[in-house]
């Protein structure tokens, strides 16, 4: 009985949130890794571009809501998602045309491109704040829960409840579908294969007649789709606020590097490693252990490894450890 309580407690506060957060990070890291391996720079504008795509989704969601359009139990935002992806793709392609292309053409060192992405970050950041403002925006509608904590508690006769938000389930389902689709695209289609060839060896790819412009365009479109979906899922699950999207940069970078930069499987693995480390290390195990051990051994303290104040420091510590011990990442990405 108490073991069941302990498991429920752990699932409710660690496993379920960690799974959803990990999927969100994985999608973000996937975008970073894609841009990195094909365009060859660390995109600092990633978080703010996610915010841009999500913003478009939110605005459209509000519009749909005002028209009375809805998806029933599912959030209306899903309906707006394709349009948000298209808008962000256009924005990213415009940024590429006016900013990044020049540096590719003059063969500038990668760090120049990184700096240019900081400039794009600034501009995007400003745009998002001017258009939708710097505050929290709620755009979740439909059924909020699949399993409610109170209902679960009563139904199972336990002390502890388990809540599963529909946004969490949605995140995991969409992330899996997206990853399958992406891998199919990269491994089975002609364009996907040419992208991989381009990433492996740019010169060889050019020699074999692959159009670099097409590869770049497709890369931005896919990255924009990943960003918008990751951003929207994060916003649905938690909340949308431009500044938090900027702050997602560090965990997303950490996920990409930990998994092995340039390696899509690594990015997904990295996302879950970072997310579960953050949640497990900052969780206080007092109640969990109290359920498991005899009363006399029940812990006095909180049994918390690291205060939640340092939650995001976890991703940085993992990053540093990986850089020290295995700079190529867990899955052996490429390191120049």
């Amino acid at each position: 009985m108490d073991v069941l309580n302990a498991i429920t407690l752990f699932a409710n506060f660690v496993f379920v949130p960690g799974l959803a957060y990990g999927a969100q990070l994985a999608l973000g890291a996937l975008g970073i890794t894609l841009i990195y391996s094909i365009l060859r720079f660390a995109n600092f504008a990633h978080g703010d571009q996610m915010a841009f795509g999500t913003m478009v989704v939110i605005l459209l969601t509000w519009w749909f809501q005002s028209l009375g359009v809805s998806l029933g139990p599912l959030p209306t935002a899903l309906l707006a998602l394709p349009l948000g992806m298209a808008a962000l793709a256009l924005y990213a392609l415009a940024a590429d045309k006016f900013v990044y292309r020049h540096y590719r053409e003059i063969k500038a060192p990668p760090i120049r491109l990184v700096m240019a992405s900081v400039g794009v970050m600034f501009v995007t950041n400003g745009l998002v704040r001017v258009i939708i403002g710097p505050d929290d925006q709620a755009f979740m509608d439909g059924e909020r829960f699949i399993v409610r904590a109170g209902n679960f508690r009563r139904a199972m006769g336990l002390n502890e409840g388990l809540a599963i938000k529909s946004s969490q389930a949605l995140t995991v389902v969409i992330a899996i579908a997206l990853v399958v689709a992406l891998f199919w695209f990269l491994n089975r289609t002609r364009t996907g294969k040419s992208m991989r060839a381009f990433s492996d060896n740019e010169d060889l790819a050019l020699l074999s007649g692959i159009s670099p412009q097409k590869v770049v365009t497709v890369t931005w479109i896919i990255a924009a789709a990943l960003m918008t979906i990751a951003g929207t899922l994060y916003g649905l699950d938690k909340s949308f606020k431009p500044f938090t999207y900027f702050q997602l940069l560090l965990p997303m970078f950490a996920a990409a590097i930990v998994g092995g930069v340039g390696n899509p499987v690594g990015a997904i693995l990295g996302g879950f490693v970072v997310a579960f480390s953050e949640v497990t290390i900052t969780y206080a195990y007092k109640k969990f252990l109290t359920y498991l051990v005899p009363e006399s051994l029940a812990p006095e303290g909180l049994m918390q490894l690291l205060s939640t104040d340092y939650k995001f420091a976890v991703s940085f510590i993992i990053l540093v450890v990986v850089l020290l011990v295995r700079p190529t990442g867990l899955m052996r990405g490429k390191v120049i």
Binding site: P109, I111, V114, F253, A254, Y310, S315, F316
Partner: peptide, 28 residues
């Protein structure tokens, strides 16, 4: 010591992280 000698943009990412952590420590 950690980030130099690796890819040039790792330093950027590492400094981004360390600055956030310094602020977190000072706050807490």
């Amino acid at each position: 010591k950690v980030a130099l000698g690796l890819r040039s943009d790792y330093l950027a990412i590492a400094t981004l992280g360390i600055s956030e952590i310094i602020i977190a420590m000072i706050k807490n």
